[in-house]
């Protein structure tokens, strides 16, 4: 059994990341997975905020203080961007699922669009939230 395990580990592996020239679609595929994992952990911040609001004014003052520090604001901005980037990346995957947008020009264009779109939409969403009375 031990022998079988060793020989399994010594099998040749197919080429992996390091031998390929990085492309935009590859990088944004990685970004999609990384943002997904970050959002997974980020739910803890959302939970902290929700529980604090449900617990009462004192608990809420704590999370509010944190979110108003520079670090808190940066995390919140990063969280917003990760959410929107993962959403746009997901929409791109849904388009690809229909068999559309897979040509060499379209796929690069779609991929760039998710990045430009996520940065732009993050700023727009923060501006809308400000207009609705947030951040004052």
């Amino acid at each position: 059994m031990a022998e079988a395990k060793t020989s399994a580990k010594n099998r040749p592996l197919s080429p992996h990341l390091q031998i390929y020239r990085p492309t935009m679609t590859m990088m944004m595929s990685i970004v999609h997975r990384v943002t997904g994992a970050a959002l997974y952990v980020g739910t803890l911040l959302l939970l902290w905020w929700l529980i604090a609001a449900a617990a009462g004014p004192n608990a809420y003052a704590g999370v509010q203080w944190f979110l108003e520090t520079v670090i808190g604001r940066l995390i919140l901005f990063g969280y917003t961007w990760a959410m929107i980037q993962h959403m746009l990346g997901g929409i791109r995957h849904l388009i690809w699922d229909t068999g559309r947008g897979l040509g060499p020009v379209e796929r690069e264009w779609l991929t760039m669009a998710t990045l430009v779109g996520s940065v732009g939409l993050t700023v727009i969403v923060w501006f809308i939230a400000y207009l609705m009375g947030g951040f004052r």
């Binding site: 959302l46 919140l76 917003t80 969403v125 809308i128 939230a129 947030g134």
Partner: peptide
């Protein structure tokens, strides 16, 4: 996202 951000502050 819009809801949570609009409640900040």
């Amino acid at each position: 996202v819009i809801l949570v951000l609009s409640l900040m502050g």
